[in-house]
């Protein structure tokens, strides 16, 4: 259950935060963290409830970005329409990929999304004039909603805050609803869920498509925030970071995606600063070593996520089943 007072307190904290930090660098980090947390909320539904993993969410993020950017520049669409398309296209693609693969073992969706992610990244790079190739697309307009143009960081910050709040509340509704019970039931026992009348393939597909739509939304917003996009933020490594954010924050928790995104973004920044001090001359994406190791450790010791450290109730709830769900039990024997 969600404590309303806590939600309000956190909301007020984030409402006044820009006035406390007075730093464009930190404000930019907060905006990016907020955008990532939108993706991670969706990924959390997919991983924590439907029991599936995607290593291609950076591609959905990128598809959203490029869709919004191309439609708003070359095609001259109004920015809100381009943003809607940025949500629709990844959702559609996810439906196509997810339908056959979700019926199979976890492995197959992981592989299909991984391949899809790399493929899309190649397409961004090789897309010629349409995607601008490795140098990307510039001159993306600011988002304008009914006369209000989001052309300053502070305005965009409040927009992202509102979107994160709305998405969080919607997902909170979802997990306590009939559909959410079904998603949780699938995680606990897929066979029992099926024989209770739940179309588990469809529910997993819906969770997957929903997560892709959220990634597309974040991507569209990202394009309108930075107004210049290139393929590099949509690489496979970013997909891994999204998975890391989801599990570090804690799967199946309300606060997990926010905590996870914040922690990983902060860690990335800290490493960017610290590693060259320790290992002079280190260049490139060396942070990924640490992200990888942290991910392995979390998966081994706390598959339910570090967020469960912070909310004892959930921690206790998960304690009995570190390995996650049982699948085969009910069918053997006879």
């Amino acid at each position: 259950m969600l404590k309303k007072a806590l939600v309000f307190a956190v909301l007020i904290f984030f409402l006044v935060l820009p006035f406390l930090i007075r730093s464009n660098y930190l404000l930019g980090m907060l905006i990016v963290t907020g955008l990532y947390s939108i993706i991670v909320i969706g990924l959390g539904i997919l991983m924590g409830y439907a029991g599936q993993v995607s290593f291609g969410h950076a591609a959905f993020f990128g598809l959203g970005s490029y869709t919004a950017a191309i439609l708003a520049t070359s095609c001259g669409w109004p920015t809100p329409a381009a943003l809607l398309a940025a949500m629709a296209l990844p959702g559609l693609v996810a439906a196509l990929i997810g339908r056959p693969t979700l019926k199979l073992k976890e492995l197959y969706l992981a592989l299909a999304t991984l391949a899809f992610g790399i493929l899309v990244h190649i397409l961004f790079n090789e897309g010629g004039e349409i995607t601008g190739g490795p140098s990307g697309l510039a001159g993306i307009p600011y988002l304008s909603l009914g006369g209000l143009v989001f052309d300053r960081d502070i305005e965009f910050y409040y927009l992202v805050l509102a979107v994160v709040l709305l998405v969080s509340l919607a997902v909170n509704n979802l997990i306590q609803s009939r559909t959410g019970r079904a998603l949780r039931a699938i995680r606990e026992s897929e066979h029992a869920a099926q024989t209770a009348g739940m179309d588990t393939s469809l529910l997993k597909l819906q969770a997957f498509v929903f997560s892709a739509v959220l990634a597309g939304l974040a991507g569209g917003l990202y394009a309108f925030y930075v107004t210049f996009i290139s393929p590099s933020p949509f690489s496979f490594h970013m997909s891994v970071q999204f998975v890391l954010m989801a599990v570090v924050g804690g799967l199946g928790t309300f606060w997990g995606p926010l905590q996870g995104s914040g922690l990983v973004v902060a860690l990335g920044e800290a490493l960017r600063w610290a590693v060259p001090l320790v290992i002079p001359g280190a260049g490139g994406e060396y942070q990924i070593i640490f992200f990888g190791i942290i991910l392995v450790l979390v998966m081994i010791f706390r598959p339910a996520g570090l967020g469960s450290l912070l909310s004892p109730q959930v921690n206790q709830e998960r304690a009995g089943r570190p390995g996650g769900r049982e699948v085969d039990g009910g069918v053997a024997g006879g």
Binding site: V53, V240, L295, R325
Partner: peptide, 13 residues
């Protein structure tokens, strides 16, 4: 652990 966790581990490695 479920396959989900194992595949995350090998990709992280």
């Amino acid at each position: 652990a479920p396959g989900l966790i194992q595949i995350i581990i090998t990709i992280s490695l």
